[in-house]
Amino acid sequence: MSWLTPHIATQIVDFSSAMLLLTCFAIVAQRRLSACVDLFALQSLFLAMTAALVAFLTGTRHIYIAAGLTVVVKVIVIPRVLKGVIERLNVTRELVMKINVPASLLICGALVMIAFFITQPIIPFGHLLTRDSLAIALAIVLIGFFTMIARQKAVTQLIAFLVMENGLFLGATAATYGMPLIVELGVFFDVLVAALIAGIYTNRLQDAFDSVDTTHLTELKE
């Protein structure tokens, strides 16, 4: 493939990582819970695409497995579970927010800058192909972290956690062309189980508190 110069390859990978970051912002701006789940599925699809691209461009076979698992677990299984959870709930929207959408978006923008700033000293050592992806990965992790704090519904917090996990996975794929296979499989297993457990929890919270608003969880304090 003569047209596929290293420069173009880098551009393609950068583009699809940037799409991941973009969906992150969309999740922050979205109030409807089911739309958040769809956006998460979309983000995971971009993640699988990025992973497959890296696998194709570098010839690292085992990333294909990870990409396939991403599609199965994060694009199909987890969104379905979450949709099932949301259907059982009496809320479909995030009504009260601790931090409103415009302010959240501004903060997320700042987080992206911080991520690039932190990773600056180590980026020059990276592989040429995926240089900026590490910074983008950290940015996604930080945004997920922030969303977790800023949103109150148990479902949104769970999505934020999964977004963080996506960021981490992008980081692993970008910086090191994937982790050892045994570790990657373990991580997938953990994420899947965590999502299932959190889903069960949300149902129990709904039964016990009549709400999945985590601000109601205030019975334990000093």
């Binding site: 956690f161 981490l168 980081g171 910086a175």
Partner: peptide
């Protein structure tokens, strides 16, 4: 579940960097 999973996710980033 939430606090520890988030904390542990940060540790995973550390592991990725270590591997890097």
């Amino acid at each position: 579940l939430i606090l520890c999973s988030v904390g542990i996710s940060l540790a995973l980033f550390g592991v990725v960097l270590m591997y890097y």
